[in-house]
């Protein structure tokens, strides 16, 4: 699958994460992560984002993630929502 526009989901509140996805100029899944707990969980967070993207079979995508200590379930949910929003034709969500 392919996304054609930028969309985001989440918030900057504690225990949440703000995920913004956009079409990538380069090939592959590119994740830029800013996190309060980067040293401790950075690679885990990226892996959760990457795995979620793979479920959608999206190959080229750029992800900006601003993490405030979100747990895996929230990272998955926010990534999914952002992708679903980016996949929609119009910007209105159902």
């Amino acid at each position: 699958m392919k996304i054609n526009k930028t969309a985001s989901s989440g918030s900057m509140e504690s225990s949440d994460i703000m995920i913004t996805v956009s079409p990538a100029k380069e090939k592959g899944i590119i994740i830029e992560l800013v996190s309060d707990v980067e040293e401790l969980f950075g690679s885990k967070i990226k892996k959760v984002i990457r795995d979620t993207i793979k479920e959608f079979e999206i190959e080229n995508i750029k992800v900006m993630a601003n993490d405030k200590g979100a747990l895996d379930y929230a990272i998955r949910a926010r990534t999914k929502t952002a992708i679903l929003r980016a996949l929609k034709e119009c910007s209105l969500n159902e």
Partner: peptide, 18 residues
């Protein structure tokens, strides 16, 4: 209204894993 999709997705993930 604009967050209905996000809330639904978050709740699904939460109920599945917490």
């Amino acid at each position: 209204i604009s967050e209905k999709d996000a809330a639904r997705e978050l709740l699904i993930e939460a109920l599945n894993s917490l």
